[in-house]
Nucleic acid binder design. Structure first.
Lengths: 216, 216
DNA sequence: ACTATTGGAGAGTTACACTATCCGTGTCAA
DNA sequence: TTGACACGGATAGTGTAACTCTCCAATAGT
């Protein structure tokens, strides 16, 4: 297929596809002549993945490029690639004062040790966790209970996530599932959490007329 | 205190504080003369909250303003304000084809009914959930199992979240805790999930030399 | 008295993700 | 076969969001 059809199948405007090609988010089509190229279903899939990572995952273009580069490794070691690729999807923006951040780092280190989590040297996720812990303290919230409870639940979530990865076929498929599951999973979890929070809040603070009409 | 001290205490540059004042993210200081104002600890707290919502929560300025406006309501009904304020913190960007999105909406509706969740008419969170479900399908991933499992876990998370809200003092404090817990909670959960995933992946796919040196 | 700082307003800057325009070439229906 | 349209590729321009700079007259601190 040519670029117009690729555009039609994905809903992505032609100039945007050209931009993604330039940025290396999409592999070049097979050239049939110096200025004609052919695209196939892999391009459609890849383009959809890029859009989803952008729109739902809100990852920057550069991060997506790096992630996809990892996905394209031939015969990858799944665990190793995951250790390299996924931490990139958590953003880090230093904002708190250094002393507070250092204390938060120490707290995270303790948490990891207590739980016996086996983590690579990649400091990215630990950095992200420490920054959030520091942020809680910045606004005067006691994160201690939440941290332990969330860690419990994160472990359970991860079990489901890895099952989701394991069911995919082939190393390539597993990597794809891991990326999709991790990044879209964040958003899915966030949306479900908001709904569950509202439900829990309704139970706790009492229900108003406009909240439920029939079942109560 | 004056603006320079406010800047020093929070690490936010003076021009940025002026910008936040203009944008209504920060209430004006008490004017002592036509061109002199005094700020207090509430401004420090508020400014820190704004920075955290920006840096960790990645909320747009306009969303933060709306959120803070809700926080500033006198004698608020916590549940009602939460129903209005928190959905704003989940982004929505239509990207999938309409038929797929409609099917995803139906799936979410079923999920809510099955679980007996009591939700207000605010369609925001449902929209966000449906978009993520559609996104999973866009990239050819079967979200069915994940959806049920995440919903289970979202319910448990929400219980902890509401406990976190309930322990705060006063309606104002509860609202503050709800905003902080929800928005920073998303990031905290994401970071912990990444670490738990890596640990789970290490258990499942085997451990390499560079992953852990001492404990195995 | 005098220098630095203030509140306030408008314009300018940066980063990012596109989007528009152009050009020479290629395709394809009439 | 010929003429309108689409193509790949390159360069430049646009829109938005979040700042950041510059200027001003008034005031604070010394």
């Amino acid at each position: 297929m040519r670029i117009a059809e690729l555009s039609q199948k994905t809903g992505v405007p032609v100039p945007t596809i050209k931009y993604y090609l330039r940025e290396g988010l999409l592999p070049a089509g097979e050239l049939t002549s110096p200025n004609q190229a052919r695209y196939d279903d892999r391009h459609v899939q890849r383009l959809r993945l890029v859009r989803v990572l952008l729109d739902i995952g809100r990852l920057p273009i550069a991060t997506i490029r790096d992630l996809l580069t990892e996905l394209d490794q031939p015969d990858p070691d799944v665990h190793e690639v995951l250790g390299r690729a996924l931490p990139a999807s958590v953003g880090t923006r230093e904002t708190s004062d250094p002393a507070m951040l250092a204390a938060a780092h120490e707290r995270v280190r303790t948490l990891i040790k207590e739980r016996g989590w086996l983590l690579s040297d990649n400091a990215r996720t630990r950095q992200a966790a420490a920054e959030v812990v520091a942020a809680f303290q910045q606004v005067g919230a006691d994160v201690e209970h939440l941290l332990e409870q969330y860690a419990d639940l994160a472990e359970r979530i991860a079990v489901h996530d890895l099952r989701f990865v394991a069911q995919a076929e082939g190393n390539e498929g597993k990597l794809h599932a891991a990326v999709v599951g991790s990044i879209l999973g964040d958003s899915l979890l966030a949306a479900l959490r908001r709904m569950a929070q509202e439900h829990e809040s309704a139970k706790m603070f009492g229900i108003r007329d406009d909240s439920c009409d029939d079942s109560c």
